[in-house]
Simulated scan of single mutants.
Amino acid sequence: MQEVRTKDAVGHVLCHDITQIVRGGVKDAVFRKGHVVREEDIPVLLSIGKEHLYVWEQVEGMLHENEAAEILREIAQGSHMRATLPKEGKIELIAEIPGLLKIDKERLHQLNALGELMIATIPSGMVVKEGDKLCGTRVIPLVIEEEKMLAAKALMGDKPLLELLPLKKVKYGVITTGSEVFKGRIKDTFTPVLVDKMAAFGCELKSHRILDDNHEEITSTIQEMLAEGVELVLCTGGMSVDPDDKTPLAIKNTGAEIVSYGAPVLPGAMFMLAYTKEQTPILGLPGCVMYAKKTIFDLVLPLLLAGIPVTKEWLASLGDGGLCQNCEVCHFPNCTFWKGV
C-alpha cells in the first residue's frame, strides 16, 4: 500500500472504501475498495476532501483480491453456472438452469481451513431455479500471496467443488392399490397429490392403474409399466405391516433390488425403495404422502430426478432431523426436516 496524490492516482487501485456523507443522513461509499481510479473520478474525490489516496502497490508474487477471487471462482465453478464480475474480492456463482446443487463438502472444508480465503455456499442437495445464487467466493485481505492461491488450486485438483445436476423430467407410472379404491367405495385422493408433486418438476404421468390387494397383479403391473418405458414407478397404499397389505411383497417379487423397507423419517417411516437391474426406481409410498405437507417422498424425489443413487446409508442418516415439525406455515426446505447430500 502506498500514498499518492489524488491528482496522480489515475490507474491506481484503491485500498479502502471512500465514504461520502451527505446532509440528511446519507452515508455510503462513493468508491469501493478495489476501484480503479479514472480521470473523471478526480473531481469527485477532491470534492469530498481526498487530497491523497492509499492505493495498491504492485508487488511481484502478490495478487490483488479480484485476481485471487478469479482463482477461487475457477476452483468452485461447475457446469450450468455463470459468474458475476469480481467486486471487492468477491465473485458469486449463479444457476443457469433449474437443478440440484451438489457440493464436495470435504474439499470445501479443506479450502476454507487454509485461511485468508473462503467459499460460502447454499446447502448441498438444494433444488434451485435458474438465476438462484449458489455461492460466493471472497479473498479476505486486499492482496494475497500468489503462491498461496496456486497451492489452494493444486490442493483442490481439476474437479469443481460445485456441481449443478439437471433434474430429469421423467415419464412415470402410478399404481394405486386397495380394495376400497378398486371397488369404488372411496375416491382415489392419493394420485392427484403425486401428479401435483411430479408436475412441479415437469414430470409426466405415463400410466395409472388402480388394483385390488393382490400382490401378483401388482407385481405384473409394475413389470408391464417398466416394459412400456416408464422411468419411475410409484406404488401407493398397502405399505403397512397389516396382513392384507401386499405392496412390499409385490415390489420384492419384481426381482428389483430392495434398498430399504422403512426409513427413520416421520412422516414416512413405511417407505420402500428398490431399483431394477436397469436402475429404474420403484417406490412404495406410505399413506402419509397423501395428506402430510412434506414427507420422505419430498426428500428422496429430487435425488432420483438428478440421477443420484439413493443408498441405504443415506436413508439411515435421515434420522437426525427426520422428525417433521408440521409447522402451521411450511418453510420446507428452509427447515430442520430438509436433508442435503
Rank of each mutant, 00 (worst) to 15 (best):
T6H: 12
L14V: 02
T19E: 14
G24E: 12
R32I: 11
K33M: 11
R38E: 12
I42S: 14
P43H: 07
S47M: 08
S47T: 08
I48Y: 11
V59P: 10
E60S: 15
G61E: 09
M62P: 11
A76M: 00
Q77T: 03
S79K: 15
S79N: 14
R82K: 07
K87T: 15
E88G: 14
E92H: 11
L93K: 00
I103T: 13
H109T: 07
T121V: 03
S124I: 03
D132N: 09
I144A: 14
I144W: 14
E145C: 10
K148H: 13
L162S: 04
E163M: 09
L165Y: 08
P166S: 07
G173C: 09
V181L: 04
F182N: 06
K183I: 09
R185S: 11
D188S: 12
F190Q: 05
T191E: 06
P192R: 00
L194Q: 05
D196A: 08
A200P: 02
F201W: 00
G202A: 06
L205C: 05
L211I: 01
D213G: 00
E217A: 10
T219M: 14
I222C: 10
Q223C: 04
L226T: 02
E231K: 03
L232F: 00
V233M: 04
L234H: 01
G237N: 00
K246I: 00
P248D: 01
P248Y: 00
E257N: 07
S260N: 10
P264N: 03
Y275A: 03
T276H: 06
P286V: 01
C288V: 02
F297C: 04
L315F: 07
S317E: 08
G321R: 01
C335S: 02
V341H: 15
